[in-house]
C-alpha cells in the first residue's frame, strides 16, 4: 500500500485532487438551481482544471513555466467570466428574475 502511494508524488496528487474537485463541482453545477450557486460551482470547477493543468504537466515533465503561464491567463479569464455573470445576474434579479 505504501509502495503504491510512493509512486505518486505531490504533483500527481494535485492532479487527482483537481479531478475530484472538477467532478464534485460539475455535479453541483448541474443539480443546483440557484444562479449564484452555479457560478460558485463554475469557479470551483475552474480551480480543479487549473490544478490538473499544473499538476499533471509537472508530474510528466518536471517543473515547467508554460502551464503556470496558462493558469495565470485562465484565472484572468475566469475572473472576467465571474464578473460578467454577476452583472447579468444582478440585472436579472433587479428586473424581477429568480436568482
Amino acid at each position: 500500500m505504501t509502495l503504491w502511494l510512493e509512486a505518486f508524488n505531490t504533483d500527481f496528487w494535485y492532479a487527482i485532487v483537481g479531478a475530484v474537485l472538477l467532478v464534485l463541482a460539475l455535479g453541483a453545477f448541474i443539480t443546483s438551481r440557484q444562479l449564484i450557486k452555479k457560478l460558485l460551482a463554475f469557479n470551483i470547477m475552474g480551480s480543479g482544471v487549473f490544478l490538473i493543468m499544473v499538476g499533471l504537466a509537472q508530474y510528466q515533465h518536471g517543473p515547467d513555466s508554460v502551464p503556470q503561464a496558462l493558469v495565470l491567463t485562465g484565472i484572468v479569464v475566469a475572473v472576467a467570466a465571474t464578473a460578467l455573470a454577476l452583472v447579468l445576474i444582478r440585472k436579472f434579479v433587479l428586473k424581477g428574475g429568480q436568482p
Binding site: V49, I52, L56, A57, Q60, A85, K95
Partner: peptide, 27 residues
C-alpha cells in the same frame, strides 16, 4: 437577460470541458 445567463453558463461549461482536455493533452 435570462437568455444571456443561460448562454453564458452553457458556454462556460463548454469551455471548461475544452480546457480540461487541453490540460490532459499538454500533460
Amino acid at each position: 437577460l435570462q437568455a444571456a445567463i443561460r448562454y453564458l453558463f452553457a458556454a462556460l461549461l463548454g469551455s471548461l470541458g475544452y480546457l480540461a482536455g487541453v490540460a490532459l493533452l499538454y500533460g
